[in-house]
Design a protein around this nucleic acid. Structure first.
Length: 467
DNA sequence: TTTACCCGTGTC
DNA sequence: GACACGGGTAAA
């Protein structure tokens, strides 16, 4: 049953980082990883102090809101247990590992549900009283798939009115094809419907809807065109179908099973939710973003390998730089092209690619060592912004190699964004550190121990032949 | 009283 | 119109 006249406002937390997403998401992640585990009080202090570097003009309250609303609730980048200890979430750890920003948002979008445990108790009760139960992103993508079948192009406004502000849709009672049929009929009649709340500004009606669609765009699943039309990313059909397949499934996190009449239970739904939401979906591989799904031609990665969709992120960056270097060296001196070597698989060298300088001068044939650090996102990096800060993790071997080869050691920072690739080259890391242009802090601890440190030996495992 | 989602309203 | 600051306000 679907009656679009039943309208219902159902929000997500209002965003704060859209404008600087490529800057702030890695910042949140690095900060949280650096300062957790911690008790809630020191987490608050450290987070705010460190985020201030990225938002120099923000008030304490604004920093608080970034921490609790965006990094905490909306993005699920950390969770707080019942003893008020703060931990880095699986989602954050994976992002720090693979630098796949669209995958981060795919995971987050998939897990967003109404009702959820990130809202205030009054809001949760409101949703419960209205029998809300839906994965909004799954439903939106399902409807977009159905619409594509019949050649219907939906706008942001359509998605707002007919889906995300529709009570029947939010109750999970409206089938995607029903919704599409109704929209087609209205189109044929020339009717355009809009969300209206008397006396309210457009941000009250539409901001949460715009922002949910923005997150789907950052997830690389849709693209919003110049006329506000919402288009599916055809290169991400695997992930899109995964979302769509789950649109009418019972919600994993059951808000309805909580009796919210006591303070204890209201607290519990918060901690239970933040634990649930901070974990990755089971089939996380399906959300991996490939260069191909960002619309980057495969031949830019490798002329030899066709199966780039199977190549892991680090390797895609390495292949890209390898192809780039080979072309660059070849155009300087054909004879030197064979000196460009891809050594990514060779552990412990401290660099991925060995190349040659191949520039005019005495050292044109000298070897150069290249470490590739790649990242994936939908938006371009904002290098022209003076507050722009980027962070990469170097292994001990890479750090040693950077010092050892100083002037001949290069970091190629590769950004795969939609439809193109940016590459920033950093030459001579050692000198940059000495000049204060680049800050390096050791973050790992290594513990060496011998038999004198062992307190107990327990041997439980036995082979079937006895020991 | 403080905390932390909620969201009016100013700014671009 | 988009979007984010920081006041608003419900909870603890």
């Amino acid at each position: 049953m679907y009656n679009h006249f039943n309208q219902y406002r159902c929000t997500i937390i209002r965003g704060k980082s859209k404008g600087e997403m490529d800057n702030l998401l890695p910042a949140y992640a690095q900060i949280i990883d650096e300062i957790t585990p911690a008790d809630k009080g020191s987490f608050e202090n450290s987070f705010n102090r460190l985020l201030k570097r990225f938002l120099p003009n923000a008030s304490i309250k604004t920093l608080d809101n970034h921490r609790t609303e965006i990094a905490g609730k909306l993005f699920g980048m950390y969770y707080i247990d019942e003893n008020q200890n703060v931990y880095t979430s699986e989602r954050t750890l994976k992002f720090l590992e693979d630098n796949d920003q669209p995958a981060f948002f795919k995971d987050m979008c998939f897990k967003i549900q109404y009702p959820n445990g990130m809202d205030k108790p009054a809001t949760i009760l409101e949703r419960i009283n209205n029998n809300i139960s839906v994965r909004p992103c799954s439903l939106v993508l399902s409807v977009l798939l159905e619409a594509k079948e019949v050649g219907l192009v939906l706008t942001k406004n359509d998605i707002g009115y007919y889906i995300l502000n529709s009570l029947d849709a939010l109750q999970g009672k409206a089938f995607p094809n029903e919704i599409v049929n109704v929209i087609v009929n209205d189109r044929n009649e020339g009717i355009i419907r809009k969300i209206k709340n008397p006396g309210k500004a457009s941000s009250y009606n539409m901001q949460h809807i715009n922002e949910l669609l923005n997150y789907l765009e950052l997830a690389n699943l849709i693209h919003i065109g110049m006329e506000y039309e919402v288009l599916l990313n055809e290169n991400e059909l695997n992930a899109i179908n995964y979302f769509a397949k789950h649109w009418d499934e019972k919600l994993e996190f059951d808000v309805y099973s909580y009796d919210l009449s006591t303070v204890e239970n209201r607290k519990k739904i918060g901690t239970d939710w933040s634990f649930y939401f901070s974990k990755l979906v089971d089939s996380k591989e399906i959300f991996t973003t490939t260069a191909k799904s960002l619309g980057i031609p495969e031949e830019k990665l490798s002329k030899k390998l066709g199966r780039t969709d199977l190549v892991a992120l680090g390797d895609e960056g390495e292949l890209f730089v390898y192809e780039y270097e080979k072309e660059r060296v070849k155009s300087y001196n054909h004879r030197l092209a064979s000196k460009v070597l891809h050594l990514g698989k060779t552990r412990g060298l401290g660099y991925d690619i060995q190349s040659v300088i191949a520039e005019d001068g005495d050292i044109s044939e000298f070897v150069k060592y290249i470490e590739v650090k790649s990242t994936k996102r939908v938006t371009a990096p904002s290098i022209e912004d003076d507050n722009w800060i980027d962070t990469i993790n170097l292994t001990r071997n890479e750090w040693i190699a950077a010092n050892q080869h100083s002037n001949y050691y290069f970091i190629y920072r590769v950004y795969f964004v939609r439809g193109t690739v940016f590459m920033y080259v950093i030459k001579n890391v050692k000198e940059k550190v000495d000049d204060g242009l680049l800050r390096v802090i050791p973050v790992a601890y290594r513990a060496d121990f011998g038999n004198s440190a062992i307190d107990m030996v327990i041997k439980e495992a036995r082979s079937e032949y006895g020991v």
